[in-house]
Design a protein around this nucleic acid. Sequence first.
DNA 1: CTTGTGCCCTGACCGC
DNA 2: TGCGGTCAGGGCACAA
Length: 267
Amino acid sequence: MPELPEVENVIRSLVKKISGNRIIDVEVITPNIIYNRLEFSDLVKDKIIITLERRGKYIIIKLNEGNLLIHLRMTGKLLYNGEINKHTHLKIDFIDGDYLIYNDVRKFGRISYLNDEELEFYLLKKVGLEPGLMEYNEFRDKLMKKNGPIKKNLLDQTLIAGIGNIYADEILFASGLHPLYETKNLLEIDLSNLYNNIRDILDKATIAGGSTIRDYVNGDGTAGEYQDAHKVYGHSGKECTCCGCILEKTKVVGRTSVYCPICQRIR
DNA sequence: CTTGTGCCCTGACCGC
DNA sequence: TGCGGTCAGGGCACAA
């Protein structure tokens, strides 16, 4: 499931390959995944790709006029000259004969065409602090205004953008914090550990090419390797790498959360 | 305003 | 081999 490191790797794998290319045809195979589906093809056709950017878990393909905004959700993939199959929902053909496809087994992903103004408005509303760019003070001030369990707030994209279920669990383990720990009760040391671990884990995961749990691959079809470094996600019932006790799971805002009952005690 | 719940969707997996 | 049930979960609509 693509989170910030996976989305970043998709972009890095595609940016050099498709920048500068002209789109000569747009085939919408599954209209449901397209936001402005009626005029989408006409809007995108004949545009030139300038570059690709990331905001949170969103991929922005900047065109010479307007932008494609893409969210991969759970199983979405953007593939350069990839295999066209029954899960291919969009195909973008370039003038040089190459193409970009959007494949998505579960059809949760969404793609829209937005002009610059619409894009800016949308991102401002939906996407919060960028982990790699946020400063400690703004992180702390924003987080401490929130109620509820810390994990709920780590998953809130309008607060900090890009953390999903996998990295939230890993960040909390590294910080020694229980997923249900009340945000308002966090100490200064907890906040500083969280801030450092958010940046550190997302950064290391990005360098490792992201995490491939089921079928994530980047734009080339390359899998990630960070799953080998996971300490808690997917390890429920196994021994904690730190203290040896058995990792437990609980639900937080409907998401499975794995944690160590000793290393992540609520103090 | 915040907070909670169900839904979208398919494949993998499990027990029988 | 098949079959029904359960689980995975990001973001959104909707309700309270």
